[in-house]
Design a protein around this nucleic acid. Structure first.
Lengths: 229, 229
DNA sequence: GCGGCGCTGTGAAACGCATAACAGCGTTCT
DNA sequence: AGAACGCTGTTATGCGTTTCACAGCGCCGC
């Protein structure tokens, strides 16, 4: 869920790739992993497109960005394509992530990380509650937010997740950015205002939920575009 | 976070409104609430635009959809505009929501609903774990998923949130749709395949997180569009 | 009272993205 | 062996959204 803004883009080789393409590539790779796991060797664009809920044309167009060529007769080789997308998406080295806010949501995020995502690791948690600080949570040390700057620098963290109440989110974000974070994932229901060179992604459950509720009330055959006039 | 597809639209009066507009309207209203709470009476489009992280032109254009006119000299009257947007967005009556999956994330969602959102209420929770079933959770009864159909019908639920492991999500979704749900909010990291008249919104934390990590590695001044060639 | 300023609302242009259409080619079937 | 099929990669078209630009107008200051 997101608001359309001047898209952040990133160069690869001499090309520039939009956020939308990146998101879909991530999705394709996940599907390819599942396919590889289930023993599939080759896949056609229309098959993969169905699994990703995308048109085949769009899939092929997206794949142009990663410079991988499929065979007209066999389609794409699952493992090879997965690796090629990985080469495009993955960091050269493991990225360290910080989590701020160890409430219900924070714990859910910890649970989410277990096992998965070897290339992204939560190496530090922060909170303001003394009861939650200076402990180990899922093998990860927790600190008081006031130590953020030191810890972030020491551990070379440049990605952070914010899972604190809305009222605290902006000041937390300011602290993080000041401590060198380049990229944020914000779960608080507030639009953060930050310098333009910081990448922010909002997961705004409140807005998303209202949106879903709104569209639950639309006319039955809306998908067919039946509007008069 | 979402993939661009043929946009779901909804008529209002004789106009049709896109998802993007709806999302922004929801956001504007939230900001207006905060402004009203802090005692602000009037607001100009450029002020509101900054708070919403949008251009003033876009804000004004969005507001055209709700048929509210501001004054050239005072701007928009905060409370009146908030109410006007509410009249556009809100359901005539309270909507009942179901939550499937009472794990970490499910509980976080319950916590989220506390106090807020009088127009959306979780009236039933479902799980497959016997230990979590037939209890009260935050004043809401929990049932085994096998009872979904009956309960959903009885309570007139047409919106549901899915917070179960990825492997179970599709079958849960099928059950829900079969039980009459029109609109889904899915937190599982799987793309659900459902009939086109069902509205689905994905909150895919895995994808979003990878995206954030990816853009943390972009060149420093990317925002200025410094690409050569 | 009149001129000028700054805001709103909206038509028109520009942009980005998705969709459609097509050329190339390896495989397979006759 | 030759032809036809179906898939890929890519170019061209179209659409939706955002951005630009300006007309209209109430208020404020002179």
């Amino acid at each position: 869920m997101t608001i359309k803004r001047p898209r952040t883009r990133r160069k690869l080789g001499r090309r520039t790739v939009s956020e939308l393409v990146v998101v879909r590539l991530i999705l394709y790779r996940r599907i390819l992993r599942d396919l590889a796991f289930s023993g599939t060797r080759y896949v056609f664009s229309h098959q993969l497109a169905i699994l990703a809920d995308v048109t085949p044309e769009q899939l092929r167009r997206d794949l142009m960005n990663v410079r991988y060529e499929g065979s007209p007769t066999r389609g794409y080789e699952v493992v090879a394509l997965e690796e090629r997308i990985g080469a495009f998406l993955d960091p050269p080295t493991t990225q360290s992530v910080a989590l701020v806010g160890v409430g219900n949501l924070g714990r859910a995020l910890f649970a989410y990380f277990l096992g998965r995502r070897p290339l992204l690791q939560i190496v530090a948690a922060f909170d303001i509650d003394p009861a939650k600080v200076d402990r180990m949570i899922n093998g990860c040390p927790s600190y008081h937010i006031s130590e953020a700057r030191t810890v972030m620098r020491d551990k070379g963290i440049n990605v952070a997740m914010i899972a604190v109440p809305a009222a605290a989110a902006q000041s937390v974000a300011d602290i993080l950015v000041e401590a060198g974070v380049r990229s944020l994932l914000n779960f608080a229901d507030v639009r953060l205002r930050l310098p333009p060179d910081v990448y922010v992604e909002h997961i705004d459950i409140g807005v998303t939920l209202e949106k879903v509720a709104f569209f639950a009330r639309r006319p039955v055959a809306a998908a067919k575009d039946v509007g008069p006039a």
